[in-house]
């Protein structure tokens, strides 16, 4: 299974569309979608600071969300 954090799709582009097209659209598929019931004794961040700043104890659940800025590459 493809476990990357982002999925892409390519909507229909009409030759009559008024605006320059966004060829590729994306949506999030964060890690918890693939984990099922969380397994015991998952590896934790090595420092409390890292865990605090990440918002989770476990790197396996961490999803760095890259904000969409402009038109994504096709």
């Amino acid at each position: 299974m493809n476990q990357s954090n982002t999925r892409y799709y390519y909507p229909y582009i009409s030759p009559l569309d008024p605006c320059p097209p966004i060829v590729r659209k994306s949506y999030s598929t964060p890690p918890h979608l693939f984990m099922g019931f969380q397994p015991p004794n998952l590896e934790q961040f090595s420092t409390a600071r890292e865990a605090l700043f990440s918002g989770t104890l476990w790197p396996a659940l961490f999803d760095p969300y890259p904000p969409k800025k402009g038109r994504e590459e096709a």
Partner: peptide
């Protein structure tokens, strides 16, 4: 849809 589908957040 045609007016907004290609608009970025900005």
């Amino acid at each position: 849809y045609k007016l907004t589908k290609d608009a970025t957040p900005e």
